[in-house]
Design a protein around this nucleic acid. Sequence first.
DNA 1: GCTGAGCGC
Length: 90
Amino acid sequence: MNIFVARLNFKTRREDLEAAFAQFGQVTSAKIVKDRDTGRSKGFGFVEMANDEEANKAIAALNETELDGRTIVVKPANPKAPGEGGATQS
DNA sequence: GCTGAGCGC
C-alpha cells in the first residue's frame, strides 16, 4: 500500500515518517520527496506499508495530525507515471 | 536562513 503524505515539515526526515507509520504497522519503505536540483525537501513524501489494512488505519490515524510540529495530510498515493526512468508497471 | 499545494526518476 503506497501512502501519500503532504504538508510535512521541511526538516522532517524519512525515518520520521517511517517511525510515525511503524506505530500502526510494518513500514516497507518510506521516502521524502526532495527537489532534484536543489535537494531541498518539497514538503511531501511517500510511505509504503506491508499490510493494506494497517496502511488504511495508519492513514486514518495519521491523517491531519501533527508531525514534527506541523499538521500533515495522509492519503493513498497515485500510481507512479511510467517514464524512461521508472520500471514499467504490469 | 525563506515557502505550504500537492503525487515519487
